[in-house]
């Protein structure tokens, strides 16, 4: 297996682990949310890259390109990524809402000061 065509996948995985690192290590609620967004988008990119074909165009039939000889990228990952974006969006909105409520109660975004629950 050659190294060169693997580069996009590896970059996506690095981005994923950057997000994961932030999600686990960071102490600020907003930074955690941003890390989640990075992780989610890294996965979406990974999915898109999976469907890539060399010298292929977008998977839509138009009036002047109806023949089946045109090479197109795989449309399935794109449909899946659209769904995944929607899910990521709703999780992000929920996270932001909860973080706002936490700020209202605790007056801080620092998770080291938010620890009522123990044991």
């Amino acid at each position: 297996m050659k190294f060169y065509p693997m580069i996009p996948y590896i970059l996506c995985l690095i981005l994923f682990f950057v997000g994961l690192y932030g999600l686990i290590v960071k102490k600020n609620l907003l930074k955690i949310i941003i890390s989640f967004i990075i992780m989610d988008n890294a996965l979406n990119l990974f999915f898109i890259v999976l469907g890539y074909k060399k010298d292929a165009s977008f998977p839509v039939f138009l009036k002047n390109r109806m023949s089946s000889s045109i090479s197109m990228v795989d449309p399935v990952p794109q449909a899946l990524v659209l769904t995944s974006i929607v899910i990521g969006l709703s999780v992000t909105i929920l996270m932001v809402a909860v973080a706002l409520r936490i700020y209202e109660k605790y007056r801080t975004f620092d998770i080291t000061e938010i620890k009522n629950l123990k044991g």
Binding site: L23, I24, I32, L43, V98, K105, K115, N116, L117
Partner: peptide, 20 residues
């Protein structure tokens, strides 16, 4: 309330790692 929100945020973070 305080406890619910804190628990929910922990749950969301860990659960989103899992779904990732």
């Amino acid at each position: 309330e305080r406890d619910e929100l804190e628990a929910a945020f922990k749950y969301i973070v860990l659960s989103s790692i899992s779904t990732g």
